[in-house]
Each structure stands twice: as structure tokens, then as C-alpha cells.
Simulated scan of single mutants.
Amino acid sequence: MELIDAMRTTGTCRYFSDDPVPDEVLYSAFDAARFGPQGGNRQPVRYVVVRDPARKKALADLYLPPWKGYLAAISTGDINVGALDKTVQAADDFAENLHKVPAIIVVCAEMAGLHPTDTELGRLSVVGGCSIYPTMQNLCLALRDQGVATAVTTLLCLSEPAVTELLEIPEGFITAAHIAVGYPAKGFPTKLTRSPVEDIVHLETFGSPMYASTAG
């Protein structure tokens, strides 16, 4: 499919069919994903594909408690996700059935291959992810090209020590995300809702719109 079409329809899938994703489909996606941009061509990203029912269940059991806590905070209004009720319900259904997805891909990264430059700024450090997440997004797009849906979550990173033990991830590697992978049970979205370009692009200084709003 066309790249732009893939970009505009690679949303977060919450409902997957039971059909397994063949090895050759995954291979093709991993092969394309590895060309994602990264600092110094260090190539820190590694993947663990989890298909074993017992391991998927163990990951799902780690996922559910923090999700339910998050869901409770949404219900009380302590957290405002700005999402429709049906979206929150779909996310809850996803959490309850995570162990049933055909595969969970655990995205790992070698710490020696990361070079965060924002650790001394007194705020959340995010720069290290620049050598991880472009490659991960390549993977999602490459899977979408083959009709495979994905859902990226970082909630399981809260349980990194347990995940590391479960999957025998060696010292020196971190978990950066988990991706549920499978064929979509309800098809792909034809239109994703996102903020318009006019609201998110500034010229020269933040707050100075580059493009005039066409609203109203």
C-alpha cells in the first residue's frame, strides 16, 4: 500500500482475530524496520517475539493491575485522557484479552547504544528514545503494509524487572515498549482523529501559527 495511506491508518488496534501471524510476515517487517534512523548507527534495538500462551498470560497479568488503576483514575476524573467512552471501553477490553493476541513483541534497547543528552535538564528524559521509537514505528508501518495491526503500549515497562526475568533479557538492556500484533478483527480505520496541522505547527516562535486556521 502507499506509505501515506499506511501512516494515516496505522491506529491502535484493540480487537484482534485469532489468526496467527506467519514467520515470513514478521521477518519482512523486521527487515524493513531495521532501517529506522538512529544516532551513530548504533542499532540498539532488539525484539523478543512472545507467542507462548503461558508467557503471554504472564505479561497480561502484569499489565492488568496498572491498567485497572489507570482506568479507575479516569472514572473518578483524576486523569483526563480526552478520549470517548467507547475508546476507553475498547482499551479495557484490550487489557482483559491481551493474553489472547497472536503475538506480543517486546521492544528492547541496549543502554550502551543510547546517548540521551537531556538528563541534566531537571525534567523527564526522552531523548534516548530517538534511537528506539523511529525503528519501532517502522515496524508498525511495515506490518500495516501486510495487513497486520498493532497496539503499542509502554504500561508494561512499569514491570521491567519481572519482564526481564520472564524473557531472560540480559543485563544492559531495557524494555522500551510492548506491541500487540495480529490481524484486526474489525478491519482498519478509514479515518483517524488527530489535531489539524494549523493547531500543531508554529513558525519561528511557539504560539505563532505557520498556517492560518480554516475553522469557522
Rank of each mutant, 00 (worst) to 15 (best):
Q137L: 12
Q137C: 04
Q137V: 07
Q137N: 13
Q137M: 10
N138T: 02
N138Q: 14
N138G: 04
L139K: 05
L139R: 07
C140D: 02
C140Q: 14
L141I: 14
L141F: 13
A142R: 06
A142L: 05
A142N: 07
A142C: 08
A142D: 09
L143H: 08
L143T: 04
L143C: 09
L143S: 09
L143Q: 10
R144A: 09
R144V: 04
R144C: 05
D145C: 06
D145V: 03
D145F: 08
Q146F: 06
G147T: 03
G147W: 08
G147S: 04
V148P: 00
V148A: 05
A149Q: 06
A149H: 07
A149L: 07
A149E: 08
A149R: 05
T150H: 04
T150N: 05
T150L: 04
A151I: 00
A151Q: 12
A151L: 11
V152T: 11
V152Q: 12
V152N: 10
V152G: 00
V152I: 13
V152M: 14
V152C: 12
T153K: 04
T153P: 01
T153M: 13
T154W: 01
T154S: 14
T154V: 11
L155V: 10
L155T: 07
L155K: 02
L156W: 03
L156A: 03
L156D: 10
L156Q: 07
L156I: 12
C157E: 09
C157Q: 09
C157L: 05
C157N: 14
C157T: 15
C157D: 08
C157K: 08
L158A: 15
L158E: 13
L158N: 14
L158I: 10
L158V: 08
L158C: 04
S159C: 13
S159D: 11
E160C: 01
E160I: 00
E160S: 09
P161A: 04
P161M: 04
P161Q: 06
P161I: 01
A162G: 00
A162S: 13
A162C: 00
A162P: 01
V163T: 02
V163E: 01
V163M: 14
E165Y: 01
E165H: 12
E165D: 15
E165P: 00
E165I: 00
L166K: 01
L166V: 01
L167Y: 01
L167V: 02
E168H: 15
I169K: 07
I169W: 09
I169Q: 09
P170R: 12
P170S: 13
P170H: 12
P170I: 11
P170M: 12
P170V: 11
E171G: 12
E171H: 11
G172T: 07
G172N: 10
G172Y: 11
G172S: 10
F173A: 02
F173Y: 15
F173Q: 14
I174Q: 11
I174H: 07
I174Y: 02
I174F: 05
T175N: 13
T175K: 06
T175R: 12
T175V: 15
T175Q: 14
T175P: 00
A176D: 10
A176Q: 10
A176K: 09
A176T: 07
A176C: 15
A177L: 11
A177Q: 10
A177K: 09
A177H: 08
H178A: 15
